[in-house]
Structure formats: C-alpha cells, structure tokens
C-alpha cells in the first residue's frame, strides 16, 4: 500500500473512534435514543476488511454497524443524522443506529437479530454466483451469533453450494455480557472445521492483518473456491451498548486490551516507525476528524425529523390498487378508523 492509502486507513479508524465517542456524548444528552452499540476497539476490522474489497462487493453486518457504514464511505453526516432519527439519515430516520444501510455502496445493512442476517448474506452470494457478477459477499457477525441455528444453516449452505461469501467473526469474546467460554462449547475455528470450510485466525486489532486475510478470502471466492471463515480476535473498549454498565469484565482485562489499541498501534508500528508521518501530521488528521464529526453533529441536530406523511412510504414497493381504503389495512380510513393519515387523533 502506498503512503496515502495507509494514512487513509488510519484516518478512517480515527474517524470511527471519534464518531463513536461523540455519539456516546449525544446519547448522554438524549439526542440519540434506544440502543447504541459502539465500535470502539474493533475499528481495524471494518476498515481493514473494506479496504480489501471491491466497491461493488456486497457487505452485510450486524447491529454494531457505524464503523462499517463509515468505512464503506457513508458520510459522518448521514450516519449521525440517522442516529438522531432525522430525515437526512441513511434511512431517513426509519432504521436508527442498528439498521444503517447504503445500497448504492453495496452496503446492505445492519441487522439486529443475532444471526438473522447470515442466510441473506449467503443469498446475496448465491445471486452473484447465479448472475456471474464476480462479486464477493462479506458477512460480519459477533462471536455470540455462532451458536444460533441460522449460523449453522448458513455455514452448511455456503459450503454446500460453494458460495462466494466471507464470514467474518468479530470475536470480541463476549456475547453481550456472556464470555466466550460460557456460551460456546468449542473453540471458534472448530466451528468452521465442522463444515470443512477454509478458516483463519486473525489479529483483529491489526488493520493490515485484517486486510490481508480478507484479500486472501476474497481471492479464493473469486477463484471459485467458495466460502471462508475468518475469526478476528478483538475486544470492545466500551460495554455492549450504551445501556450496559459493563461490570462483568474486569478493569484489568480491559486495560490489558487497551494496550493493543488498533489505532495507536497502527500509528506507532507502521506510520511513525516507517517515517511515513510526523506527530504533527497525526495531530492534523485528528483535528480534521474532530471537525468532521462536529460538523456531522451540527448537521444532524439541524436536520428535520422525517415528515409524518412519509410514514406509509415503501410499505410496498409495488402498491396495490385499492389498499388505501379500509379497515386495519394500509392507510387507516378517515371515517370509522381512529387515526387520520396525518397521525392526529
């Protein structure tokens, strides 16, 4: 990779980190509601993986999706606006934090039912295979999703039909609050071995290691060698979500993992060590990232809420002729029903 590209990886990781820290602040200020699953600590995975893929390769992820959206090129403005529930967000405020999406960037969304998105990732891969597009589908998941039925159904199907899909386990070692050894009977790679699937264990705190592993897996998929399984060992620096008091993990354990921070590590071991940047360069990058996120917050805060009239949009992509009238159905009727189309009672 050239200097520019390496600096870009750093900037993307830092953007995610600063974005998440500011999002946490906005959550505390009640600008953001519901669940907010932050990506701190895992930045190297999204950034390294996206850098290894083509722009038209498909990406499907779970609900810890801000980092993936930003790495894939969604603007900090659109992502923050979505967290704020505003019309300018990635889904116009429909999906919120857990359901970011940008199909124009082949980012097919964050999915919030653990393991629920694995079959559809295989399906995207089957479509690419059938249509001969040469696209690879990357599907990320947490370690906690490797015990549910859809995981095994998707692994089996992917191997059976030789689907060009890369399963990336963001193994942060906790299924919400439950430690890996409490929730899983076997080591992670044994699960891939059960389906005779090509697998690697990857240092998920090392952006270059992630990138290289995904490059190898994508190459295999493009060459007709089928699915891969990458166990990326990582750690999240915050709780499961903003609702998590994070009392089950020891302070010592968290401190130990923080020493392996993927961002400072990349700066120290690659950028500074190879003389690609000076500390002043890094400070300038931080400043520009902070400005970008501040701008995103201002943008989100000033954006309008989605219009009430849009509530029924896209209930169907192909509307049915007489569905506006009637009963409990699509649009409540003006007479006889309780709710008028403008939402007022």
């Amino acid at each position: 990779m050239d200097r520019e590209s390496l600096i870009s990886l750093y900037r993307q990781m830092l953007l995610i980190r600063v974005f998440e820290d500011r999002a946490a602040e906005m959550y505390a200020k009640a600008k953001i509601a519901g669940f907010l699953h932050l990506y701190n600590g895992q930045e190297a995975i999204a950034v390294g993986a996206v850098s290894a893929l083509n722009p038209d390769d498909e990406i499907v992820v779970n609900y810890r999706d801000h980092g993936w959206a930003l790495a894939r090129g969604c603007s900090a403005r659109a992502v923050m606006a979505e967290l704020f529930g505003r019309a300018t967000g990635t889904t116009g405020g429909r999906g919120g934090s857990m359901h970011l999406v940008d199909v124009s960037r082949h980012f097919w969304g964050g999915y919030a039912i653990v393991g629920g998105h694995l079959p559809l990732a295989v399906g995207l891969g089957v479509a690419a295979q059938y249509l001969g597009t040469g696209r690879v589908t990357l599907c990320s998941m947490g370690d906690g999703s490797t015990n549910i039925g859809t995981f095994h159904a998707a692994m089996n199907w992917a191997k059976l039909w030789n689907v060009p899909v890369i399963f990336v386990v963001e193994n942060n070692q906790y299924a919400m609050g439950t430690a890996y050894e409490v929730h899983s009977a076997v080591p992670m790679l044994t699960k891939a071995a059960g389906y005779d699937m090509y697998a690697e264990e990857v240092d998920g705190m090392d952006v270059m290691a992630v990138r290289e592993a995904v490059c190898r897996a994508a190459e295999r998929a493009r060459n007709g060698l089928g699915p891969s399984f990458l166990n990326m060992v990582t750690y999240r620096f915050r709780g499961h979500s903003m609702a998590d008091p994070d009392v089950q993990r020891s302070k010592e354990e968290i401190a130990e993992w923080r020493k392996r921070d993927p961002i400072t590590r990349f700066a120290d071991e690659v950028l500074l060590k190879r003389g690609l940047v000076t500390q002043a360069d890094l400070d300038a990058i931080r400043k520009s990232v902070e400005e970008e996120v501040e701008d995103a917050i201002q943008f989100a805060d000033q954006s309008p809420e989605p219009p009430l009239e849009s509530l029924y949009d896209y209930i169907y992509m192909q509307p049915v002729s007489n569905m506006q009238i009637g009963g409990s159905l699509i649009r409540p009727p003006k007479l006889g029903g309780r709710v008028a189309p403008n939402g007022k009672r």
């Binding site: 995207l124 089957v126 690419a128």
Partner: peptide, 17 residues
C-alpha cells in the same frame, strides 16, 4: 432448514433474483 430457505431466498431476491 426453513430459516435458511427463506433467508437465502431473501438475500437472492435482494441480489437480483
């Protein structure tokens, strides 16, 4: 594996089938 028949079908529909 009905969850996969539906889920894989869903992904394939998203992907153009």
């Amino acid at each position: 594996a009905e969850e996969a028949i539906v889920g894989v079908g869903l992904g394939a529909a998203m992907g153009g089938l």
